[in-house]
Amino acid sequence: MEYLINLAILFGIYSMLALSLNMLIGMGGLVSLAQAAFYGIGAYATAIGMTSLGFGFFTTIILGIIINAVIAFVVGKILARFQGDYYAIVSAGLSIIVFSILQNWKSVTHGPLGIFGIGKPEIGSYAFYSNTAFLGLVAVFTVALYVLYQWINKSSFGRVLKALREDEKLTQSMGYKTKHYKSVIFVLSAALSGIAGAFFASYIAFIDPSSFQLKEGIFLFTIIIVGGLSSALGSIVGALILISLPEVLRFIGLPYETAAQLQQMIYGAMLLLMMIFKPQGLFGKYRM
């Protein structure tokens, strides 16, 4: 059962990431490949906060949200100058820049040494040591994020966002300050990814920069491409498919060396086939 609980925890974390990214790409139409950067910053906030600063887990979540909000505000403004595929490419570049900082700013992040011994969340005197308890906490946050997503989706903020996704100029001409909306959703998306990062750091108890490279951002992007853009359900389904795919492949009984390459081929094929046949994703409502 440990195995399934372990997978479920990761599924929960990736669902959170997918939901936050889908707010940005699906609702906002801002195709960013930089999500891993904010995921990483959130993870490091928790790691450093809990090991060096002695904060509790939930305090570090708030710390992570603040740091991510500030950085995302700046990054979002830089990205806002670009459109469409340029936005994506520049976001990829920003992801590489953040990774480079995490890797080389050794005095703060310890670079490739990573940070060890990250503790588990505690509420009062209860500590979430058991994986089952941890899973429960992750589930609560995931559901909360899902609800938040739907709430934004149905709110007037969400409607304006989706309108500017379809036609920014028209939305502007109707009097909405689209730059403001784009900035808000970028910051919100980053902050929520940071929360997922906090859980990741606490769960694995040891983080290093290698988990937060561009390829992670591409992986997150693949999740929502497959699951569906601008869909909360799609985010969850996408995360489920991509987290469990390697396990399913394994049960089919492929030799272990080729299994990994095959897995990579399937990811690639998913992207390609989705783009050819269903660019909005399985449950998606927005087509890039």
């Binding site: 595929d85 390459q261 660019p279 890039m288």
Partner: peptide, 22 residues
Amino acid sequence: ASSMVLMVASLGVYTIFESVIL
């Protein structure tokens, strides 16, 4: 297909290519 869709598709092809070479 929009240029974004083509880019994502090409990313998929590249991923497949890399794993074949591997």
